[in-house]
Design a protein around this nucleic acid. Structure first.
Length: 721
DNA sequence: ACAATAGGGATTTTT
DNA sequence: TCCCTATTGT
């Protein structure tokens, strides 16, 4: 492979990045749609083919499995050689690989298991219950959040100063118990993968030197999304002799709430000095209008590293901005516009409906069903997170290692077999006292129990042993197929009346297929089964390169990051919804909302449509909303504002028309939310909300002294102050 | 063991 | 309003 093959079709900056001296570290500030994945993979190809770098000397890190798989595929094509041994993967996947390779040095038994969010939640919940913590005062989610937050920062319980904060004090107690529990049961949660592998290297200078020397080049994707531990992890592997190549875009940092530190990208310049910064500003995705509008929006953020995207693709169409009366009206606009695109020959999967929060999908879904347009909603439970799949996997885990307590707890009485809470509690007690696992405890304790429970328990342990025996010589997928039947799961789910579509049994069938497709890489000590189980935890998507289907795509803006669509509808552009209410008081949160908006807008290739509703039904009540501030940050010359009622598609025109023009803020300028009014009896107050029309029009007012009231406006005789 | 019911909470979720 | 969880009743 020669150089021209690698840099063919790259622009100046891209090719400069790719062919940078191999003794040089680099930060590539890659704007949306500027071809960053291409630069990253071509850089690797350049190092391997032009600088004769061995593929084992490369460490390439991404955030998602999807990105990692994509990179592998592209490298396979580019390098025309197997790259199996190359360390390309997610932070978590690579950390996991380190721990599996050196379990003893990391103080782990080789059979350690990965805890996913759900498993973690269950454990924390049980620990809280056992310690009489009131869940209504201390929500499990919050405690789980607290623990993960600490771990993402590399903070261990002993590092935390107990202050006056009661929540922190109690959470810390649980944190300690949780850590002890995980250590006793060989459990590693997501954050622990990083912390533990970090400590592994930190405490083993020989190992550290080995990997520092081995990885001559460390390449990191989406650097703006790294959290503290991930940053420290990369920094530890960097000894100054090796080089980093980090790609990121500070304008697309949208995971700050999850611990991502946007500052990491600026810290690079000092911590990894000397490092050369290159900006990729030519956009190959969107039209000029979309790009200029996005640039104008993001310019409102402070502390940017600075970057301005351009395109030579031409202005394209203006951005539609639709003012809807209600969320139903908004859905009508979006769906009928999509219908027009379809009529003009577009395919459904070229259209994406994006929103800030999942709850907004419902209205669109209803319309899509009504107009018979195929769609797919992203979000919700992924394949390996589904209850029936987790059930089956827990049987698999128990068969692999009967000492797996998490798996034991989940399936000991599922499908129900007469082993109640009391029995399980006795098993736990015995296991605690005798320092053994639950399965062993169950075998030992059975004879001491009342006959009924004893029989049930013996039946269960024998079932597991029998399944182990029966599947000894079967391959992975046959094993899964066997366990689904033998455990009674398939019978249980086919009798499930709540699952009319039979999707649960279908999913179980799908699991057999997934096991068949799993290709095990024997680059570590894991058995095939253990490898499959780990994969299920680390990549819960269950995607086996699912072919793109002809569906309109509905998803949150967060999940749209990294994707692109010809037609994008960015919906619910209202204050308190987007930007979210929870972000309005904190400038740095507001900046993140704006970046999110920027991400959403820059997903669009040909046509972007923005929309907001004047009145939205949310959390069981109608709310009058103001257009998002982001809309006013987009210069109107890029916008095509549409205000009139869209089309005649709405059959519920009358019903929707509860918005009374007579009392609309636009109509008379008198009554509007936030307006101060005076009432003869209740005195001064502020208008919170209003609805209805004619004689039934009502106004909600928060009075200074009389509290909040709904008043019929025709009787209220309000005086505007 | 399961269905009916009540209560509380309701961004975003790469791993 | 809707959805998830916990509790209660059969």
């Amino acid at each position: 492979m020669n150089l021209s093959e690698i840099i063919d079709g790259l622009n100046n900056e891209q090719s400069q990045s790719v062919t940078l001296n191999d003794a040089q570290s680099a930060l590539i500030l890659a704007g949306a749609g500027s071809g960053k994945t291409r630069v990253l993979t071509h850089r690797i190809a350049y190092l391997v083919t032009q600088k004769n770098l061995h593929i084992d000397a490369i460490l390439a890190v991404t955030f998602t499995n999807k990105a990692a798989n994509e990179m592998r595929e592209r490298l396979n094509v580019l390098l025309r050689r197997p790259i199996r041994s190359m360390w390309v993967g997610t932070f978590h996947g690579l950390a996991h690989r380190l721990l599996r390779t050196h379990p003893a040095e990391a103080n782990l038994r080789p059979q350690f298991q990965i805890l996913d969010q759900q498993d973690q939640y269950r454990i924390i919940k049980r620990l809280m219950k056992e310690n009489q913590m009131d869940e209504s005062k201390f929500p499990v989610r919050k405690v789980q959040w607290f623990i993960n937050q600490q771990k993402d920062e590399g903070i261990r319980p002993n590092d935390i100063e107990v202050g006056y904060n009661f929540f922190i004090k109690k959470s810390l107690e649980i944190f300690k118990l949780y850590e002890a529990h995980c250590n006793a049961n060989d459990l590693i949660d997501f954050a622990e993968l990083l912390v533990r592998s970090y400590e592994l290297l930190k405490n083993n200078p020989v190992l550290l030197t080995h990997y520092q020397t081995r990885f001559a080049h460390i390449l990191v994707d989406e650097f703006q999304d790294t959290n503290t531990m991930q940053y420290k992890w990369i920094k530890l592997l960097f000894d100054g002799n090796n080089k980093v190549f980090c790609v990121g875009d500070d304008d697309q940092s949208i995971y700050g709430w999850r611990g991502a530190k946007i500052e990491n990208i600026t810290k690079l310049e000092t911590d990894f000095a000397p490092i050369q910064t290159i900006r990729l500003e030519q956009n190959y995705r969107s039209t000029g209008n979309i790009l200029n509008a996005s640039n104008a929006l993001i310019a409102n953020n402070s502390n940017r590293m600075g970057k301005s995207l351009w395109t030579d693709a031409g202005d394209g169409e203006l951005i539609d901005l639709y003012e809807a009366r209600t969320e139903t009206d908004e859905a009508d606009f979006v769906i009928s516009t999509i219908q027009k695109h379809l009529d003009n020959g577009a395919s459904a999967n070229e259209c994406a409906i994006l929103y800030r929060s999942n709850a907004q999908s419902r209205g669109f879904e209803e319309r899509l069903i009504k107009y018979n347009i195929p769609y797919i909603i992203y979000g919700g439970l992924r394949f390996f997170e589904r209850a029936e799949i987790k059930d089956a996997l827990c049987y698999l885990r128990l068969m692999e290692t009967t000492a797996d307590n998490v798996a034991f707890e989940r399936v000991v009485n599922f499908p129900t077999r007469g082993i109640g809470a009391a029995t399980v509690e006795k098993i736990r007690g015995f296991a605690r006292e005798n320092q053994t696992n639950l399965f062993q405890a169950a075998t030992n304790i059975a004879s001491t129990l009342p006959t009924r429970a004893a029989n049930a328990l013996v039946a269960f342990t024998q079932l597991i042993e029998q399944m182990q025996d029966d599947t000894k010589h079967l391959d992975l997928s046959e094993k899964v197929a066997h366990l689904i039947k033998a455990s009674g799961l398939i019978t249980h789910y086919s009798n499930d009346k709540t699952d009319k579509a039979g999707s649960k049994t279908a999913n179980l069938e799908e699991l057999i297929a997934a096991a068949r497709q799993y290709n095990h890489e024997e680059d570590n000590d894991m058995s095939e089964t253990l490898g499959f189980i780990s994969l299920a935890s680390l990549d819960s998507s269950g995607n086996t390169n699912a072919p793109p289907t002809q569906n309109v795509q509905l998803m949150t803006i967060h999940s749209a990051k990294g994707l692109e669509f010809p037609y994008v509808f960015l919906t619910g552009m209202e204050e308190d919804l987007f930007p979210s209410r929870q972000s309005k008081d904190e400038p740095h949160l507001m900046d993140e909302e704006r970046r999110l908006c920027y991400v959403g807008m820059t997903r669009a290739m040909k046509k972007l449509s923005l929309s907001f509703a004047i009145k939205r039904f949310l959390h069981g009540q109608s709310i009058y909303a103001h257009p998002s501030r982001f809309l006013s940050e987009i210069p109107s010359k890029y916008l095509n504002q549409i205000k009139q009622k869209y089309g005649a598609t709405s059959k519920n025109y009358q019903k929707d028309d509860s918005f009374n023009q007579d009392i609309a803020p636009q109509a008379n300028g008198e009554l509007s939310i936030g307006r101060t009014v005076k009432h003869a009896k209740f005195g001064f107050g502020t208008v919170l909300n209003f609805e209805g029309n004619g004689d039934s029009a009502r106004v909600q007012i928060k009075f200074k002294t009389a509290g909040t009231k709904w008043l019929i406006s025709t009787y209220a005789n309000l005086e505007f102050v």
